[in-house]
Structure formats: structure tokens, C-alpha cells
Nucleic acid binder design. Structure first.
Lengths: 312, 312
DNA sequence: CATATGGATTGATTTAAGCTATAAAGATAT
DNA sequence: ATATCTTTATAGCTTAAATCAATCCATATG
């Protein structure tokens, strides 16, 4: 049994087709045919059911594929070990970013990063904090960018920046004349929130919770993106809070509705997080440096108070 | 990179000698030399420091060996998957047994088992409960025999038998005239115990604890084996408790010092335990059947009360 | 200095991985 | 029903890689 054979198994399991899998493996179809047959002969068990169209896995086949994934993944980590030893910065790097950070942060650092580290092949995915935690734990993500602290034992956090919350207050809102707002002004009942599952939503709720009791079921209007939140707010459906980076590219008209908080402004802590056993620490270092570099130019707040992103 | 190469790396790391490692791998020494060189070339890193005598691992080498172990172990599990599918009962099976069970139970079932399942190659180790739990969790043991319940989420338990405790009371002891003893008669202060780390010790302490408060630091006499415990007791140093199977091969004179408990007799639960993801379930079934078979002939108690083996 | 130990090197041999060409089996269209 | 297409299997060959026996070479030891 060889690692190559296991890779072939995985490719066929993925594409359900010898010919396509062969292409992806950069070999010919007969090569796959014979290698799979050899493996099946040696284990004396059928991995694929070729009578079905498209090809299906047998019951044992499914278990073997599962295990083959482990083995191939683990074998690739040997190269990672060597890379780390040499301080080499390159290879595939899978990173997750939460939805409320992705659209503002990614354009700020991505170009910079790939220019500085052309050998790193970033695979970026938008994921919720919860999804990120599972994937980091299972080793499917090398790192992620999320609001912290997460209070998770096996996950390490390295802070990138503190991003203040800014009030977005439409003209018809009771707070419209307050130049600078206070946390105590906030009332969950006239505030628009992101829908469930976003940690920015939980952050805002935590922010308000410390001050007032409220009725959890009263929020009627919820949205999946911060952009929609602003539009809903323009329609007079309530005020909302925006992460600071989201306020930078608003039109003049919209900018005029921004109300900063009095110091210390509530803020979220944004960190790059990774599993404590993660090997590609140099790439994490690199990301950390690039991102905090570009952010230094954009965010210059000293006095902030960090709000937990965790749901209570 | 091939699995074979990784196996070679592991062999050399183990024997610190190419020639010996080659023998164990059933290849010649030049084969190892060239294969290791190829791997080192490909990774472009030295795994072994050949200037030292005996050969040493480099820093990266150590990490690579660690990872290679993972990969080789995981790759061997593929055969296990297939074996399980086919119901094949054979291959290597690593089992741990706690010290207070090993000497009495092993002779009772071992011959029987290897006769019935000649293709299974048992590797038996005497380990404490604590060591067993770590090794089962890390996948270094396929199963173990220990006193239960262990209350461990990832470890499954299958009860083999209930083994009553029997009092061993020397002639000069205050309880010598009581034909049958009660749990309430026990006093930790005149009782001999095994040394720390044995769960049988913890079991006995739990048994007494429910009844009396006591001074933890008062036990003076402790021993590492049940045999010594009996001898110390003969010297008049106190009574002791024995697991039932240990009472079966005592001399007549010693047997006369045994005092059984009134029903329900305190007892320990002895189980075969294994990780919840263990693959070789057929072998565990086989062991379970053989052991509970031989025990059925030896232990015939109905009314027992199980004492926890866990330290408080 | 002789000798022993243990890894590296060389060159031949065997094994196995991969290729091209083609057959065979199934599905689909005419 | 026949032709056509799709997809996997097989055959025969080539090339690459693994292994071996023999030998070299460096280092340590008496």
C-alpha cells in the first residue's frame, strides 16, 4: 500500500469517475485502474462498486476513504514540519474569515500579502465563528480571522486590531442630535441587528445587556449583511451599530449619520486564531504582520473597551 | 514519499543503527541507506545525524519521526478496517491488564484463548488504570482489563465479571471470631493496603470511607503486591481484603483465615475496556466470550455491591 | 598500525509504476 | 436493432525505482 494509491482512491471517491480523477492526478486512466485493482487485491476487498453509474463506494470503501483522508493529510504535514524548520513561507494555507470582517478587511491586505509572499497559496472561506472553531479543531483550517476572545482551550489567538463600534443613526431617530453617543443610550428595542449566528450580533447584544434587561423576542428586523443593515436603517427602521472599517467607504450623506462613541468606545477585538498544534506558524506570523501593518494606517483608537463576541 | 520509507525511518530511529534496522525490516543495509537518503533529499533536510555514535535524530528528525509514527499507525488501521468488515479474527492485539487482575485472571483464560484464536497475536502489558487510560486514548492499546466503572466519556466498558472482596483476618485480629464480616466492621486503621496508584487500594478506601471518617495519613504499611499483603498480614500487622480470585489458590492454613462478607458482599466490577473508535471489535468480542466463559465456572455470586475503583 | 564497526557507493537485477493502444461493457441516440 | 459514445479494463512495452551483493571508506579501538 502506498500513499499514492490512497491519493488515487480519494480522487476517484471525489469525482466518481476514473477518467476525471486520472486527469486531476496527472496520470492516465489505466494507471488508476491498475493501481486501484492492486490495492483492492491486496486488501482483498472491493472499494468501489463499478456496476453503478456513476461509480459508488462500497461500505468498506467509505471507511477506507475516511482513513485514507487521514493518512494523506498526515503525510502532507511532514512537508509542513520541514517548511517550518526552514522558515519557508509557502504552500497551501486555508483560512476562514467571519462574514462581518471579510468584505472590509480582505481587500485591505490581500494584494499586499500575495505580493509579499507569492509562494503562499491562500484558500479563503467565509465562515461563521462556530464553523471556524469546528474546522480549526478538526484541522481543516490552518487559521481564521474572527472576533475574540473565544475562550477556547485548544485555540490560540493573536490580536490583529481593535475595531470600535460606530453608531449609524437615521434622521428620525431619538438620538439624532447627540453628537457623540454613549453605551447607556443604546436600547435593543430600536436597534437593527444581524441575524442569528453572527458574532457581531452577539457582541451588540452583550454591549446592551450589561445596561438594560430586555425582551429577547422583541427584535423584529434582522439582516444577513451589514450593507442591508444600513439600508434598513435609512428606511427609518431604527439605528444600528457598524464596525469601524465599514464606515470608511460610506457616501458623504451616509457618513453624516455616523455617531462615534464617547471614550472608551466599545470595540471588538479581531484576532488571527489557530489550533495550538498548528505547524505553519511562519505563515501566521506573516499574515499577522501584513494585516496589522495595513490596519495601523486605518485604525488609530487608543481608548476602547472590548465587548465579548460570545453568545450568552 | 512512501509509507515504506517512513517505516524505515522509524526502524532506524528505534535501533539507532542502519544494519540492525535493515534486518528488522527484512531488507539489506544499502536499501535503507539509499531510501533514507532519497527521503532526506526530497525533503531537503537531514533526519539523522550520522556523525554521532550511535546515530542520533536531528531536531526536525524527531518531529518527522513523531509524524511518521502517526502515518504508519494510521495506515495499518486500513487493514484493521478490512479485517473488521470480513469478521477476520487475527493480527496484533495490544492489551493492558491492571496488576491486581493480571496474575489471577491471565492464567485462567490465556491458553484457552490462543487455542481458540490462533491467529491473534496478543501483546499483554501490566499497567495501572491511569496508564491504561492514557494509552487507550492515544491508540497505543487496543483494549484493557481493569476495575470499572471509569466514568470516561471516550472509553467503552464491557463487564466481564463481578469479583467479591474477601476478608483475610489473622488470628490475633479483633474480628477473628466473626464468621462472616460486615462492611461496617472495617476500619482503615487496622487494615493493610496496596501502595498508591493501585485502584484496588482506592476501591478498599472507598468501601471504608462511606462508613467512617478517618485520618488519611495513618496508613503505615503498604505493599505493591497482594501476595506481600497476605504475608504482612500473617505477621500480625493487620487484616486485609483480597479479590476473590486471589483466595482460590491459598494453602489450607491460609484459607482458614478467609472471612466472607454478608450479602450483599462488596465487589469490584471487572471489565474489558476500549476506545469508542476501536476497530478490532471482533477480537474484543472474542476475549469477552472466552473470559466470561472461564469465569462462569469460578465465580458464582449473585448478590454483590459494586465499589468504585476511582480515587476520590 | 591492525582490526572492527557501520554507513556509503557501485553496478546489476528485479519489481513496479506509468504509458499507448485497444478491447469490452453499458448507456444513449438514430 | 444498430451505431455511437462513454467509461473502465487489459495487454504489451518502457522507464523508473527498489533491492541486492560486493565493496569502499571513515572512524573508533586495542
Amino acid at each position: 500500500m502506498t500513499i499514492t494509491q490512497l491519493k488515487y482512491v480519494l480522487a476517484i471517491a471525489e469525482y466518481k469517475n476514473f477518467t476525471k480523477a486520472a486527469e486531476k492526478c496527472f496520470v492516465t486512466q489505466p494507471t488508476l485502474s491498475t493501481q486501484i485493482q492492486k490495492l483492492e487485491d491486496q486488501l482483498d476487498v472491493q472499494i468501489f462498486d463499478r456496476s453503478k453509474k456513476p461509480i459508488e463506494l462500497t461500505d468498506v470503501g467509505r471507511k477506507i476513504v475516511q482513513q485514507a483522508k487521514n493518512i494523506v493529510d498526515e503525510s502532507e504535514r511532514i512537508q509542513d514540519i520541514v517548511d517550518q524548520q526552514k522558515g519557508f513561507i509557502g504552500g497551501e494555507f486555508r483560512i476562514g474569515i467571519i462574514p462581518t470582517i471579510m468584505p472590509t478587511l480582505l481587500p485591505m491586505f490581500l494584494k499586499n500579502f500575495i505580493k509579499k509572499y507569492p509562494k503562499v497559496h491562500l484558500k479563503i472561506e467565509e465562515l461563521t465563528t462556530e464553523e471556524i472553531i469546528t474546522r480549526v479543531m478538526e484541522g481543516h483550517l490552518d487559521a481564521a480571522i474572527a472576533a475574540t476572545p473565544l475562550e477556547h482551550e485548544s485555540i490560540k489567538e493573536r490580536v490583529l486590531y481593535y475595531e470600535p463600534f460606530v453608531g449609524y443613526i437615521p434622521h428620525d431617530h431619538r438620538l439624532k442630535d447627540k453628537k457623540k453617543i454613549d453605551v447607556t443610550d443604546l436600547d435593543l428595542n430600536d436597534m437593527l441587528l444581524l441575524e442569528d449566528g453572527h458574532c457581531f450580533r452577539d457582541g451588540v447584544i452583550n454591549l446592551c445587556k450589561v445596561l438594560k434587561t430586555h425582551d429577547d423576542d422583541q427584535f423584529q428586523l434582522e439582516s444577513g449583511s451589514i450593507e442591508t443593515l444600513v439600508k434598513l436603517s435609512n428606511e427609518g427602521l431604527g439605528m444600528t451599530l457598524l464596525p469601524y472599517l465599514n464606515t470608511l467607504d460610506l457616501s458623504d450623506k451616509m457618513s453624516s449619520m455616523l455617531h462615534h462613541f464617547n471614550d472608551p468606545s466599545p470595540a471588538r477585538e479581531v484576532s488571527i486564531i489557530y489550533h495550538k498544534n498548528e505547524l505553519k506558524l511562519q505563515i501566521i506570523d506573516a499574515l499577522h504582520d501584513v494585516i496589522s501593518g495595513v490596519i495601523r494606517g486605518a485604525i488609530a483608537f487608543q481608548n476602547v473597551e472590548i465587548i465579548s463576541p460570545l453568545p450568552k
